[in-house]
Design a binder for these strands. Structure first.
Lengths: 231, 231
DNA sequence: CGCGGCTTTGATGTTCATCAAGTAAAGTGG
DNA sequence: CCACTTTACTTGATGAACATCAAAGCCGCG
């Protein structure tokens, strides 16, 4: 759902990213002209796999999941986007359509910049292009590394990995409410629901975590970190 | 090993990439000044994980593998680079050191452009930056997709996948000589040597492929493609 | 109230890693 | 050039890890 534009302009935006920091006032006008602020409620689809890419999406607040269907039709979750992430950056410059479906898993607020404005800035500002290259490099490296690390671990190690990801990267707290279902955790780290639950229950029985519905509290973090590496 | 520069200049280079196509003569001079041609024999290490990135590497001829050690010390092969690939493009703009080790798996010829020259061009030429963004996007998407596809398949499906990759993407022929050992195939698709061999033997017994040492010939391609998807 | 979706636990079979052992191929030193 | 070592390859047997099947409890929602 589109809402009226934020009262503050881009220049004074409290969330102004490092990406836009180097732009001149004139260049920032290009962004501002092609900008719209959207909100999406929990569960709402922001963009669908196959849709035309029209915007450069900046996540101002909330959480979103990136998912896709593989060639067999199996649902996979590629990653979770947190505030200040540029969503869909990876395919922005190589494909005219979204490679992934983007869904809000918490109420989100998005800043959507017309893709034409971004293209224009890349051609005009070398510094902007350089920063974009860096951002993209960081994002792709992180995603690829995550996959490579997950591949070599077995189920408990993956569960430990995902709990620590939510605690350290997303919520920055040892107590948090899981924004996704057990099934979705499975889709994220390639395991079956039953085994996600079994591993979580084992961790609970061993006193490593406390679970109450969707709320998870980490009780023994060193143990969890050990399990992530050697579990 | 460094060899004397190719007699032809960049402007008339038969391998001049789409990346450099748009450059002006003056801009191309920047590339040429920071350029060296290297050759590396089969097995030779071109760059090591952790080394400082000094060059933008363009693979003129041959094959190279990208590998890394994960946090447990387990060896993983990330991908195979073919002629005309830009090696190490992914971490070029986000890290000052190589995230992967690059090793020649066939005799290779490399064009190494000083990283300063590339940086300079990004800042100067918007078109160049735009093309680089596109290249990077394509490479990262491909690598990530490969991982995601492999994750959901079981062993025979992965072996089918890798045989088809060599046949279709690398050698463009149904008969080829495997440039890597059975062990390395395992490191590439996350399985043990014994199971790599077992799967290959099964395919041979079923008349899907013919194996003679390192030489593989695909006999029943439709079957192999079916196995890749549903095996 | 009853239906469907999410969660949980147990039982069972399949897939795969591991262990063991042996063969072939390739390098090494006398 | 031949004994010797090493490395890559191959097959079989066994057990551990995991997917699958089955069944039941929980909860929100019409």
């Amino acid at each position: 759902m589109k809402i009226s534009c934020n009262s503050e302009d881009c220049r004074n935006c409290s969330l102004r990213s490092t990406l836009f920091r180097s732009l001149t006032t004139e260049e920032l006008m290009v962004v501002e002209d092609g900008k719209e602020i959207f909100v999406a409620g929990k569960g709402e689809v922001i963009a669908k796999q196959g849709d035309l890419v029209r915007h450069f999406i900046y996540l101002r607040d909330g959480l979103a999941k990136l998912s896709r269907r593989n060639t067999e039709g199996h649902e996979q979750i590629i990653g979770i986007a947190s505030p200040l992430d540029f969503i869909g950056l990876l395919s922005l410059f190589s494909s005219s359509t979204y490679q992934y479906t983007i869904t809000a898993i918490e109420d989100t607020e998005l800043c959507m910049v017309n893709i034409g404005a971004v293209e224009q800035l890349v051609l005009k500002s070398g510094t902007f292009a350089r920063t974009l290259l860096e951002k993209m490099s960081i994002v792709s490296n992180k995603l690829l590394n995550t996959r490579l690390e997950l591949n070599t671990r077995q189920l408990r190690g993956r569960i430990a990995f995902i709990i620590l990801m939510f605690a350290d990267d997303v919520y920055k707290s040892n107590t948090f409410s899981l924004p996704i279902s057990r099934k979705e955790i499975g889709d994220l780290i390639d395991m079956r629901v039953e085994n996600v639950i079994r591993s979580l229950s084992e961790f609970r029985k061993d006193g490593i975590i406390r679970i109450e519905g969707t709320t998870i509290e980490i009780l023994d973090k060193p143990m969890l970190e050990w399990l992530m590496l050697h579990g």
